[in-house]
Design a protein around this nucleic acid. Structure first.
Length: 194
DNA sequence: TGAATGATGCGCT
DNA sequence: GCGCATCATTCAT
């Protein structure tokens, strides 16, 4: 008997990053925070792939900040940006190959009251509509960097849902590698970033 | 409704 | 110092 809800195993992340990114649309992210459990349906991601990708943080080699991208797949990479926001990534591909998928937007599912405590001014379908907003609303910070996605704090689930109307576009907010269509989103969702 | 801007910290040159 | 995988607000049309 195959369970209807299945936690994504490390083998899911240990694949070409573009495949992982495309497959993430319609999956669910679960965060078991001390204040309660939150979950959401992923509707927008971007791929950052290796030292040949000029927009990837690892493009200029390994540093203390991006070290987790060089490690095993299936871990979180959380970084601080613009003085006030965090962004959450999922590390992909084999150990030694730095790549990750940035989580840009999701639709709130469970723990919505808790999400609203973190972001009181947002309309419900906009609570997670952007990478900075996602981390603010989930309460994620640098302390959540390098966590094992096959563990029990943050993990992804396949709930056998439809991915929706998946399209690809150039990535947002970058200056180099902007011609690559490495952003994946469900165009029918009202929770994608603007 | 779209463009410009300020907030703000940190990693890298 | 500069630039950054952002976002909310302000200002102009």
């Amino acid at each position: 008997m195959v369970p209807r809800i299945k936690k994504l195993p490390r083998s899911f992340y240990n694949r070409p990053t573009l495949k992982v990114a495309a497959d993430l649309i319609g999956k669910y992210i679960v965060f078991e925070s001390p204040a309660g459990t939150m979950s959401a349906r992923i509707v927008e991601v971007e791929a950052y792939i290796g030292q040949g990708d000029p927009a990837c943080h690892a493009a200029r080699g390994k540093t203390k900040r991006n070290a987790v991208m060089f490690g095993k797949p299936g871990f979180t990479y959380v970084y601080f940006i613009y003085g006030m926001y965090y962004c959450l990534n999922f590390v992909t591909e084999r150990e030694g190959f730095p790549a990750a998928v940035l989580l840009r937007a999701a639709e709130p599912v469970e723990g919505i009251d808790l999400m609203k405590k973190h972001s009181p001014r947002q309309k419900e379908h906009r609570l997670l509509a952007g990478p900075g907003k996602f981390c603010k609303t989930f309460g994620l910070t640098r302390t959540h960097n390098g966590l094992d996605l096959t563990g029990h704090t943050i993990y992804l689930e396949d709930r056998q849902g439809e991915p929706g109307n998946v399209v690809t576009t150039p990535r947002i907010g970058i200056n180099h590698g902007a011609e690559l269509k490495w952003r994946f989103l469900d165009a029918d969702s009202s929770a994608v970033s603007k």
